[in-house]
Amino acid sequence: MNSPLNDTPTDWITTPVEARFLRGALDVERTALGVRPHRLPARVRRQFPDPSLAMMEAQPSGVRIAFRTRATAVELDVLHTKTVYKGIPPLPGGAYDLVVDGKPAGRAEASGGSVLTIDLATQAVENRPGPPGSVRFGALPAGEKDVEIWLPNKETAELIALRTDAPVEAAPDSGRRVWLHHGSSISHGTNAEGPTGTWPAVAAARGGVELINLGFGGNALLDPFIARTMRDTPADLISVKLGINLVNHDLMRLRAFVPAVHGFLDTIRDGHPTAPLLVVSSVLCPIQEDTPGPGAASFDDGKLRFRALGDPSDPSRLTLRVIREELARIVAQRVADGDANLHYLDGRELYGEADAAELPLPDDIHPDAAGLRRIGERFAERAFGDGGPFAA
């Protein structure tokens, strides 16, 4: 499917990438070279310029370039930035996935690019600038078709231009329902084999919906600006997956957690009063089921592992078990108060004890690629299947 970049005809058509070609982005920043998609609005980025959140929201998990064309070969010029962590092998997540008429059609990585190195022990950051590069897909089927290039879920991408052997136009509205999802690094796609391998992408493909993925590694923290963003984003279906980041950040106690959840849901409901809204608790994570945070990273033989450091005897501290109990209670209370389109899903239905035995968490926090795919398939069954809250 993919071919070298040294034989691009000079008479190919060059089309600058513009906002009209992008799906799954909430903002598009114009740069000196082209455009950079963002998953949070500029207003939020100005209000809370946290380096961690800034990096995560600029990684375009779920964002894709969508166009209609008769082209049989496509190149994308891009300046990508890979994030690596000092002392551990690079994580997957740098691929570009091609989808043609809704079906997977290829995977490739871009040439060139910059490298951002983070030292988790000291939080030092080193940026090594690199040149723009290209990613190419060849041997596309003849005739008019709808094409999507899914951008890397764990790299930033400054999009420059498409080069094709036939004209392109922005893909028309698919008419499919829009699913807006918020979650943690597991939703973001840590360890996914590629951008269509994140669990929300897997579930969206099976559910036949358009995805907006607001999964931000380390940042599913009940932030009011996330709730306001979801309130203001047009969507037909909404889900929020809460738990693991609140525990491993040791962010709040039970007293603050309950009203924060209510406030988060109230804000979403201000913009989407009747849309199906699904609250999902964390998948199984043995190290934090009954042990509160904070969490810490360690390196064993060059492998990243996580551990929980909190005191299990403190009843005010949040654990995953406590959070699941409270989320189930909160949803039941709100349903009894009249919100008939609010639903709850225990995350252990997506990945539980049997799954952990078969597909253990490689770093004790994140499922591997096979685990993420299983989560996506099960979510699709429970949410989009017959009788599910997102059933057509």
Rank of each mutant, 00 (worst) to 15 (best):
I160C: 10
I160A: 10
A161N: 05
A161V: 00
A161G: 00
A161L: 02
L162Q: 03
R163P: 00
D165H: 04
D165P: 00
A166G: 03
P167E: 15
P167M: 10
P167N: 04
A171T: 00
A171C: 06
A171G: 02
S174Q: 11
S174W: 10
R176H: 11
V178H: 15
W179T: 09
H182M: 09
H182K: 04
G183V: 11
S184C: 07
S185C: 09
I186N: 12
I186P: 03
I186K: 07
H188E: 12
G189M: 12
N191H: 14
A192P: 01
E193F: 02
E193S: 12
G194E: 07
G197D: 06
T198S: 15
P200K: 13
P200H: 13
V202D: 13
A203C: 08
G207D: 13
G208C: 07
E210R: 13
L211D: 13
L211T: 03
F216A: 05
F216R: 06
F216K: 08
G217E: 09
G218Y: 06
G218I: 01
A220M: 12
L221A: 11
L222R: 06
A227F: 12
A227W: 14
A227K: 12
R228T: 00
T229V: 03
M230E: 01
R231V: 00
R231E: 07
T233H: 15
P234T: 05
A235W: 13
A235P: 00
A235Y: 13
D236P: 02
I238L: 15
I244L: 14
N245A: 08
N245M: 05
L246H: 06
L246K: 03
V247E: 09
N248D: 08
N248W: 15
H249N: 09
D250V: 00
M252N: 05
L254I: 02
R255E: 15
P259Y: 07
A260W: 07
A260K: 02
H262C: 05
G263K: 05
F264L: 07
L265H: 02
D266G: 06
D266I: 01
T267H: 11
I268N: 12
I268H: 15
D270S: 03
G271E: 09
G271M: 04
A275E: 14
A275P: 04
P276L: 14
P276M: 11
L277C: 04
L278V: 03
V279D: 12
V280I: 15
S281L: 03
S281V: 01
S282N: 13
S282A: 14
V283S: 14
